[in-house]
Design a protein around this nucleic acid. Sequence first.
DNA 1: GATGAATGAGTTTTCATTCAT
DNA 2: AATGAATGAAAACTCATTCAT
Lengths: 204, 204, 204, 204
Amino acid sequence: MTDPIQEQLIAARKQQILDAAAVVFADKGFHSTTIRDVAKRAGIADGTIYNYFDSKPALLMGIFERMRASILQDAVLPDPASLDVPTFVRMFLYHPLMALKQDNFGLFRIVLSEMLVNDDLRQRYQSQVLQPMLAGVEPYFLDYAAQQGIGELEARLIVRAIAGMILGLTLEYTLHDDLLTDHWEHLPDVLTTFILHGLTPRTA
Amino acid sequence: MTDPIQEQLIAARKQQILDAAAVVFADKGFHSTTIRDVAKRAGIADGTIYNYFDSKPALLMGIFERMRASILQDAVLPDPASLDVPTFVRMFLYHPLMALKQDNFGLFRIVLSEMLVNDDLRQRYQSQVLQPMLAGVEPYFLDYAAQQGIGELEARLIVRAIAGMILGLTLEYTLHDDLLTDHWEHLPDVLTTFILHGLTPRTA
Amino acid sequence: MTDPIQEQLIAARKQQILDAAAVVFADKGFHSTTIRDVAKRAGIADGTIYNYFDSKPALLMGIFERMRASILQDAVLPDPASLDVPTFVRMFLYHPLMALKQDNFGLFRIVLSEMLVNDDLRQRYQSQVLQPMLAGVEPYFLDYAAQQGIGELEARLIVRAIAGMILGLTLEYTLHDDLLTDHWEHLPDVLTTFILHGLTPRTA
Amino acid sequence: MTDPIQEQLIAARKQQILDAAAVVFADKGFHSTTIRDVAKRAGIADGTIYNYFDSKPALLMGIFERMRASILQDAVLPDPASLDVPTFVRMFLYHPLMALKQDNFGLFRIVLSEMLVNDDLRQRYQSQVLQPMLAGVEPYFLDYAAQQGIGELEARLIVRAIAGMILGLTLEYTLHDDLLTDHWEHLPDVLTTFILHGLTPRTA
DNA sequence: GATGAATGAGTTTTCATTCAT
DNA sequence: AATGAATGAAAACTCATTCAT
């Protein structure tokens, strides 16, 4: 039962299956992928998958869970108090923009696609990703906004807008916008300046 | 063949089918909806749908086409030259934010979900919606940005960021963010200020 | 909807499917028969069956329903008051013993087999077959038993015993007892005498 | 190979497995029970079962074999010559009626259900249970019947009828007939009288 | 002998699409 | 043009059985 070696084997096999699922889902999408596709990719029999996951949707949940863990793990923000505002904003932007690009853009596309349609997934995202992330940065933003004379409601909406901007840019990227594809790495800097000063001249 | 009355009948029947499809797709999603669901909702026989549309995905394309037309039709911007910048930005934001909310949030969710996964749909969106919209506003933005000493590449990325912000906020809305649900109508004003001045005090 | 010709076609197709199911079920048993077997026998496609029946168990229910109707329809007893006791008993025995033999012994085997294991089917049999049959004859038996000085409880148990005898003999028949196979047609007479007099000499 | 201790261990393990199978079969039925269900109940691994039994049906055969042994073992009738007829009949009835009730009604249901459908099982029942039992009591009945002026064929059919009555009553019991459930223990007496005298007044 | 992970054949069921009426 | 019954390919999932450890 709690044999640690057994558990490791089981965990490894689960990872192997999720790896395979991630590849084929990213390639063909969730609905167009069959369990057989996943099994073939993983080099195992169809039925074996059901020894480790309850159903096809459960595979997607497993993938989501891995993404969630990977996102939140890296998201440990350094103490905001020790950062100046531009640095903080830049870090806030940098991590998700780069993390998504690196390995799982295609997969994020699939998960998001299903999230738009699957209530279970949506709620998990809401409660396990979005809320924690917002809770992490909102205080800092609100504090800064207050100093700038920006009201709380307004500030909170702006936090959503910035989060939405990241999400939306990612979407545009996955929709093959050439400009974004070519200049993605400039975004953190560009956006930091934009967020701090808008379209107003910065230097004057 | 080109009998105008015939054509009108055909167009009307197509609309009837798309109306039905829009309702049931929005309700159950694309993959969970059967042709029979659409036919029942439209009050016609299953087979009749195939007299007007080639396939089930073709229904989604038809819906997309209607959304595209509706978005672009309303998007006829007044002569930018006659507007001051804040008004222009506010109009640029107002229309999509309100249009989406009004009647077809649910449907947008479905179309977007499929767009993330369906190459055909994605390309159409890219070439028939996004590009034209950007082409419409980009010159104005670039012009203004140049006046503010913002480089062209930077400006173009910012245009994407603003478009992405709209898209991302819409997504967050469909993911049931309470703050957005409750204060959606404030967004055009809040965002206009934010876009023009960022988090910097506005008055000074 | 209520087009009478349509309804007849539907009813006919249902019968065709049930006929096929009856044959293959009787041959291979319920669990060993696949939907494909039924479809092939009926000369139709697999999917067509699902246009007329919800599930594989629903086929068995349909067969049960036909058996029920056929059993009860013929079971209209003539007015007991006009019959002497031996004639009444003989008629009570004759019908089920002969009906079962005639066409659906094999099928009865299958239905009974499933009834032993399937609660839904068991309850239907209990409420739709057994209870009505008992209710039909019990009064007559009780009346006669009272004349013979037999108590009510005893008489009611005897009615069950006689019904059980019919059921049990049928079972023994389906289990291939040669003596029963060869002399089935004698049973009504033999049993009538036995029921009236037991093993006691009848003439004395 | 013929190590007696080994053999005892093997026999014990077989019994353990059959005990488990009996419980889960009785609960869920043969087809609805998986090998894993049996293994879990027995507290062993799935594969272990196949060290002792060839297949899933072989488990049922094993259970049948145990039932057969238990039925025949107790069925050693005392010398009929020393019994008067009513006592003999009562004993003939008492044993199966009570044995079935006591512990294995549920299991009997399952075995019978499968017997109706499985030729192998049916033949074993026919040759190893029914024939021996009939052979044991038939001579006595025939002898008594001859004294009463009942022909041999008639008498043999009546023996089947009585056996069928026991079987049929058991079935009715498993089909949840309340009267039988409540008064099962009266049956041996009621049936003895009924078999000897039928519905005719007994005393006169 | 015991284990239990792996297997993959086999089954039910769905549903987009066709086509005779 | 409209119908809707028929089709059958496809897919998720189950589970008896095997066999390497």
